[in-house]
Amino acid sequence: MTTLQQAILKVKEAGHKAFVPYIMAGDGGLETLKPTILKLQAIGVTAIEVGIPFTDPVADGPTIEQAGERALAKGVTLRNVLAELAFFREDITVPLVVMTYFNPVLAYGLEAFGIACAAGGVKGLIVPDVPLEESDILRETLNPQGVDIVQLVSLTSPPERIAKIAAASQGFVYAVTVNGITGARASFANDLEGHFARLCEASPIPVLAGFGISTPEQVVSMGALGDGVIVGSTIVTALHEGDFAKVEALVAASKGVLEKSTL
């Protein structure tokens, strides 16, 4: 079992739901990366998704896109984020999952990128524009460096495809909760419960819900559908505005979330 999967199962065994915040690396400058990661792990997050800025983030909504533009303006790149992580990797106590579009990885070079991930203590990788069909090359080059390749499942994925993705994904399955891009939502589709029930049934590894989750109430309701949640845009905004209390409230909501069946 991988480090990433173990971390999620440990939380599950303790009766909680996994909480994975997404941060835009270097929003506010590369020097903010270390203090941000250390603060998040201190309040009990399960893992941290470290977003890499990109010029053309097609899967992201305006909040993360703008955070990416701020980071790009500060000169943040995939290369210098991984180098920065390597500087303080012995202080990192939770698994880090890098989220990057594919082109910066190609420009880095897959082999060199894998080595830099290992050096930076990275345990997982999410590439939103590499679907299952194109993902073999990522597992071939990154698995030997101890990096899981996390695949996404969407509401539009039919059952046989869900089964294939769940079988291929590593660490956890990233279940996208909306048709659309990242960013806060007031409401979700009605058939989410059935979708998650089928997905959890098909998946040999934990299932985390992500996209659009922005309030403690949604952390509870979405967390109950699977093994935990990923929260992006709201965290990005809270960190940008220096509102750490908001982050703490979201993390607290993931503790002691009951299984849906007992609600």
Binding site: D129, P131, L152, G180
Partner: peptide, 20 residues
């Protein structure tokens, strides 16, 4: 059938679009 022209092409899109 994978949408390749030699090494070029492919389907590098978010999962939500794959079924479409």
């Amino acid at each position: 059938k994978e949408g390749r022209y030699g090494k070029f092409g492919g389907q590098y899109v978010p999962e939500t679009l794959m079924t479409a």
